[in-house]
């Protein structure tokens, strides 16, 4: 058929390295080992070198990226069990105020305040959100959106914990490079821990709760207790990010509950892709440096995040990471239509 000639279709084939399940590989050569390790080892190595190479301003940007990355990972964990949070600022602020308060009023060193804020912040967030854990989807999102605003206004009105002026002259970490390494290591640890967790039986139950909570309940599993545990984990990670930033800035103010900390993680996950944690990490590593390089825009940055968020949801619902993953693991050839 001459008139059909020149019509091609895309043909997609999986590279033949997966055996039986997604996590079991059949490796036959060094080339294949390299193929599998490259996408894992390269970003890790790159991130570990960065704090030593970067200086001054861009080192700060790296810390920002890791902090937002932690918040995005924490968001992704909650989303895995069906809790959609629009208030990552709550976790961040809780950690920031705990660490800052302990340091300012009790003069405890960062070595104590950061771990204390991590655990305490997780407990606080889980405790605050436990009463609304039965809410689904939109309703849970609304409560989490309101909580940081409520706490922010509460601090503003009552004037506790420094009120509108905040607390300043907090103890810094010893050295900028050390801070950067702490942030990078925490970020990588959290990324791999969460990826491990979600592939375990524990993660299986969490994801099942998202898909069909009634079926999980009929399996004798207390879904609210599991969700509370997930909240504690996510809250701890967010609180750690807050505590880190507080000591990094040596200042603590109401801005710890700002909308930035709620929106950017969601935008990062929407851009990177939900469900794999790598997407969240990738998204924040792209978004934060991008927005920092556009710093001249000032307040427009939030608008930019929002626009990226909208475009990712409407135009690229699977996310960048899943798109890249597909491209990496599949041949795409053009086959002539017969």
């Amino acid at each position: 058929m001459p008139d059909r000639k020149g019509i091609y279709r895309k043909k997609r084939l999986d590279r033949g390295i997966k055996a039986r399940a997604d996590t079991i590989y059949l490796i036959a050569s060094w080339r294949e080992i390299f193929y599998l390790l490259l996408p894992r080892a390269f970003p890790v190595g790159f991130l570990l070198i960065l704090p030593a190479v970067l200086h001054g301003y861009w080192q700060k940007v790296l810390v920002f990226a890791c902090v937002y990355g932690l918040l995005a990972l924490s968001w992704d964990l909650l989303a895995s069990c069906g809790l959609f949070s629009l208030g990552q600022a709550l976790f961040f602020g809780a950690g920031a105020y705990l660490a800052g308060g302990l340091n300012y009023y009790l003069h405890l060193p960062p070595l104590v305040t950061v771990p204390a804020a991590t655990v305490g912040g997780g407990l606080l967030c889980a405790g605050l959100l436990a009463p609304v854990i039965r809410l689904r989807g939109v309703y849970f999102a609304m409560v989490t959106l309101m909580f940081p605003l409520l706490l922010m206004r509460g601090i503003e009105t009552t004037g506790v914990l420094g009120g509108t002026h905040g607390l300043s002259a907090l103890s810094p970490f010893p050295g900028e490079t050390l801070t950067a390494y702490l942030a990078v290591l925490a970020f990588l640890a959290c990324l791999f821990l969460f990826r491990r967790l979600i592939n375990s039986d524990y993660g299986l139950v969490l994801m099942a709760i998202r898909d069909d909570d009634r079926a999980v309940m009929s399996g004798g599993i207390n879904i609210y207790w599991r969700k509370t545990q997930a909240l504690f984990l996510a809250g701890s990670v967010g609180a750690f990010a807050g505590a880190l930033m507080t000591h990094h800035f040596q200042f603590l103010g109401m801005s710890a509950f700002a909308l930035d900390y709620s929106i950017l993680p969601v935008a990062a996950v929407a851009l990177g892709g939900q469900g794999s944690f790598a997407g969240a990490a990738l998204g924040s590593m792209i978004l934060v440096p991008l927005s920092e390089s556009l710093r001249a825009l000032g307040g427009l940055r939030i608008a930019l995040y929002c626009i990226i968020l909208m475009v990712s949801i409407v135009a690229l619902p699977e996310g960048l990471f899943h798109y890249l993953e597909r491209k990496y693991h599949q041949f795409e050839t053009r086959a002539e239509v017969e």
């Binding site: 959609f84 629009l86 989807g137 939109v138 999102a141 959106l145 909308l259 929106i263 969601v266 935008a267 929407a270 939030i302 608008a303 995040y305 929002c306 626009i307 968020l309 909208m310 949801i313 409407v314 619902p317």
Partner: peptide
Amino acid sequence: LAELVVTFSAGVA
């Protein structure tokens, strides 16, 4: 949820 996030971010923008 996508509706919520999109309308919210449009509003914030």
